[in-house]
């Protein structure tokens, strides 16, 4: 088997938190369409990112993730009140990040639906730029 050595192998890693209801399927849609993005992206699927305590995100940064994209279901969220709670929580994570001197653009809360192919790729693109700039 031929392998192509990639300059991206040791690229800074991005964690993508997706929801079962929306964005995880969205990520599959991107695959079904064979759109391409870099493999330094790790997709985690959960019922809803509202479950994560604030320190979870900080721990991810500590352990070695350079960027985190939370792809929530937004208004398509099947859980009552979850999106409001999530965005408030992420707001508090930003405060802590600021205190700790972690650039806040390394964490992004966004909404991706089951067919939001372009939005998915754009979010990854944007975060790639952020983590590259900071690695440089």
């Amino acid at each position: 088997m031929s392998t192509v050595e990639s300059p991206d192998t040791n690229a800074p890693k991005i964690l993508i938190i997706t929801t079962i209801a929306s964005s995880y399927t969205g990520a599959n849609t991107v695959g079904q369409a064979r759109a391409q993005y870099a493999p330094n992206t790790y997709i985690m699927r959960v019922p809803d990112p509202v479950m994560f305590p604030e320190d979870f995100y900080l721990r991810c940064f500590e352990k070695g993730f350079s960027g985190i994209i939370i792809m929530s279901s937004g208004s398509d969220c099947p859980y009552e009140g979850a999106y409001g709670r999530l965005s408030a929580r992420v707001g508090r994570v930003y405060l802590t990040m600021r205190e700790k001197g972690i650039p806040t653009n390394r964490l992004k809360l966004t909404t991706v639906c089951t067919v939001c192919k372009h939005a998915f790729l754009k979010e990854i693109d944007d975060m790639q730029k952020v983590v590259r700039e900071q690695a440089a």
């Binding site: 929306s22 399927t25 279901s73 639906c113 089951t114 067919v115």
Partner: peptide, 12 residues
């Protein structure tokens, strides 16, 4: 009138 994504409702 909710502007839900049609695919997101139909796919499941």
């Amino acid at each position: 009138p909710t502007l839900d994504c049609a695919s997101c409702i139909t796919t499941p």
